[in-house]
């Protein structure tokens, strides 16, 4: 039994992948000698050396381009984009090149590539270092989208990501890096497209991702203890592929659905989930699907402003009570 942080599980997941497969290498800014700005890649350079752990210049396009080209030859690169916000400076490589080249080449080219990136708020970094951007990649055909909420999920999903033949964007949540979990075994494998039930309940289904899944779980515990409401919490873990079957099954049982997203309102992933629920579970719904998101604003920096922008445990609790009690 070992206690691992989410942060430690990132470096362990990469190390385990590199030990198993010499085709795996790791590239990013400040990832080697510095061990990453979030210290999530400490020890990799020492174990694997400069040929496999590459400190790159601040050149996000060149980093992802090199990773893509290497993947086209059969190598399995893991590339780090330090903050997910920086995906905007290399979005051509992600959205036009990495995502579309398999299709445009009629399957001649395969790109087994993992882009891992620190995502989400909670650090008071302001609007350009705090965004939750899963939905940016979700809307582009050809990208798989992963967002783990626990150390075990980091290990299991990274293992699957590295072995997946398609490009994967792996969103690590900054506010979860310090979270801990007891693990018997670290050599885990979690299939994509398999939601995790974080809390059992029959009154409502709350659907979350990453930090919002963990906050939904805490909300469900409070709802059970103090309000006698039994909420089922689904952690989607991957947006693409999406575990629609588990969502459908749960909504058909509970009749109430709520999504909890960290991104601004418009075109957040919850909109797609809400649409699917309406399409597939309409006759079993007891009310409209509720979407909790951040307001449609850039994230502010000051403690009180950021804390009141990102959905909190209290907000989820209150929204569920309103919904169940019909207020």
């Amino acid at each position: 039994m070992a206690q691992l942080t989410y942060r430690e599980s990132v470096s362990l997941a990469i190390a385990q992948a590199m030990r198993k497969d010499p085709k795996v290498f790791f590239i990013g800014e400040d990832v080697g000698a510095a061990g990453g700005v979030f210290k999530a890649t400490v020890g990799l350079l020492e174990e694997f050396g400069k040929d496999r752990v590459m400190d790159a210049p601040i050149s996000e396009q060149a980093i992802l381009g090199a990773a893509m080209g290497a993947a086209m030859t059969g190598l399995r690169p893991i590339a780090e984009i330090m903050f997910s916000d920086f995906l905007a400076v290399c979005w051509d490589i992600v959205a036009n090149q990495i995502a579309k080249t398999r299709y445009m080449s009629d399957g001649q080219i395969t790109i087994p590539l993992v882009i891992r990136t620190a995502n989400g708020g909670g650090s008071k970094f302001g609007a350009q270092h705090s965004q939750s951007l899963e939905n940016w990649s979700m809307m582009i055909p050809g990208l798989k989208v992963v967002a783990p909420s626990s150390p075990a999920d980091v290990l299991g999903l990274m293992n699957t990501a590295v072995n997946d033949p398609d490009p994967v964007i792996f969103y690590e949540h900054k506010s979860l890096y310090a979270s801990k979990q007891e693990l018997d075994n670290t050599d885990l494998s979690i299939p994509f497209g398999q939601a995790n039930i974080l809390h059992e309940g029959s009154d409502i289904t709350i659907i979350g991702l990453a930090l919002m899944a963990q906050r939904s779980k805490k909300a469900a515990e409070i709802l059970k203890e103090k309000h006698d409401i039994n909420a089922k919490v689904l952690d989607l873990r991957t947006l693409v592929p999406l575990d629609l079957q588990t969502i459908k099954k749960s909504i058909n049982e509970t009749g109430f659905a709520m999504t909890v997203e960290e991104n601004p309102r418009l075109c957040g992933w919850g909109a797609e989930i809400s649409s699917l629920i309406t399409e597939h579970c309409f006759s079993n719904l007891k009310g409209p699907v509720t979407r909790i998101t951040t307001p449609h604003v850039p994230l502010p920096s000051a403690d009180i402003l950021e804390d009141n922008t990102i959905p909190s445990v209290d907000l989820i609790v209150n929204e569920v009570i309103k919904k169940i009690k019909g207020e």
């Binding site: 381009g65 080209g69 290497a70 030859t73 051509d92 490589i93 090149q97």
Partner: peptide
Amino acid sequence: MGSYAIIGAHLTIANGTALASKY
């Protein structure tokens, strides 16, 4: 290894196949 229609992108991607040969 492809023809690229967004200016500049393929210079970075070509580095990747070159990197693979070195690796």
